[in-house]
Design a protein around this nucleic acid. Structure first.
Lengths: 98, 98
DNA sequence: AAATATATTCGAAAGTATTCGAACTATCGA
DNA sequence: TCGATAGTTCGAATACTTTCGAATATATTT
């Protein structure tokens, strides 16, 4: 579940970090011009969370459909799924439509 | 925290029930023409949750700022806070703006 | 093949959440 | 003021979450 995934403080931090560090519309750090990184290790370094915990939380965020992942050599790049983001925005808009 | 409040299945059900049963812009069941109800007991009856549990969850939703409450005689009316709803919609929109 | 860098899985400890029933408080109506 | 209706608080049982370190797996480089 999406909200369960975002209910943990560290997972929310990770999600927000990915949402803000990654240029919208690009796919993680492999748009060379963007110059942003979003691999599992980077998240742990930036947010001071040990790798095994990052890995666990990433799995939850992925399971909830909030982030996408792709292996790039040794690293695994992560980025927020824009489709899900749009879906959530609409979810909270809906009840207000008259 | 808002997402923590919505992370529980029963709380999410309660929130969605309130979001859909109550006419947007009105304040619970005391807009007579609306004809909808949203008191604590109704929620329990509709969603098959015992009163003490409803009460506990309502408190959480209220604490998170998701719902508003007001005593109307013996009953306590609940409704989703439209301001918070708009805030959440904007929250998920933000990262997509370029 | 060995060494290095990166990420995952596992098990365990500590903390937190969920749910219920029983007892309690609050409000209204006769 | 008594009884009925509506909600809350409390305590306890059960279940789930979070986090870490150690061991394991995967990928690159030499």
């Amino acid at each position: 579940d999406v909200f369960k995934a975002l209910s943990n403080p560290n997972r929310l931090r990770m999600f927000l970090h990915l949402a803000t560090c990654c240029v919208p519309g690009t796919v993680g750090s492999f748009d060379a011009e963007a110059g942003v990184s979003a691999c599992v290790g980077d998240l742990g370094r930036d947010l001071k969370i040990v790798p095994s915990t990052v890995s666990h939380h990433i799995k939850e965020l992925h399971r909830a459909g909030l982030i996408r992942m792709e292996r790039r050599g040794q690293k695994i790049e992560c980025w927020v799924d824009p489709v899900m983001l749009r879906g959530l925005a609409r979810f909270f808009h809906k009840p207000l439509e008259e």
